[in-house]
Amino acid sequence: MSQTVTTREPATRPARRRTGRPWALIVAVCLVFGFLYAPIVWLALVSFNDSRTVSRFTGFSTHWYAELVQDERVIAALGLTLRIALSSAVVCTIVGTLAAFGLRRTFRGRGLWTVVLTLPLVVPEVVMGVSLLAFFVKLAGIPLGFWALLAAHVAFSLSFVVVVVRSRLAGMDTRLQEAAADLGAGPLTAFRTVTLPLVAPAIAAGSAFAFLLSFDDVVISSYLTGVGSTTLPVFVYGQASKRGVSPEIVALSTAMVGVSALLLLIGVAVVTWRARRVGRRVDLTVAG
């Protein structure tokens, strides 16, 4: 902990001295966040719309939220989607990270492995959907539903984890591990204390991708949902095909963004509060 602080400090301080606050950068960042949240703000607005359209605001009402909380099918679909997305993220993270480490150094066959691990990015969704459907039902005898969806989601998300983790490992200083080994750490200890913390951001990013991909997938999932196991995106698409996107779904979207944003703000508050406490303690030790 203290080590990271000492290495980082001298790096940033002179930078600030030279350039001051990076105003141009801050403006750019605000614009990008504006881009990311503009449609969300719009969704939040129309979720309180009194008419069925999500494109024009005609008047205020909360009845879409009221309908949402009563709609068991949406809630059930959401539950299934979350379970699959979480499971897929866990499996992808473990399997993908292992694979990325496997590809770290050259060996015979690395090129072939790379090709295989890149393929899922390229296979068109509908092709993956129908071929997996055929595979599960005819060849493997795996019933459609949770497990089939999980297997498919892992298959198409795995590459994302591998690519991100590999990009972090690329050119990573192997001397750190050697130093750890020289200091008497076993390979596992060296991995846990040196390598893992260094790749942790990439692993986190990879699992976020796996979650996101699974959570949003429609085309492939629509072929693999079984009796009584509809995921949320598939449900939403089905509804949209007859009546356009239902404001109920917009209300759900708003609620989910709202809740996660709230959790995020709480997190920020906690971090700030902790940092203040730590800061005070540091002041004390310095004074003492």
Partner: peptide
């Protein structure tokens, strides 16, 4: 120390359904 929070903030909009986001853009771009 807000790194994680800001990164998460990049991902938060994606809790909204894909179709809902696209329809929102349709409404904004019309």
């Amino acid at each position: 120390r807000f790194r994680t929070a800001l990164l998460a903030a990049v991902l938060v909009p994606f809790w909204a359904s894909y179709l809902a986001r696209i329809y929102a853009w349709k409404a904004l771009l019309d």
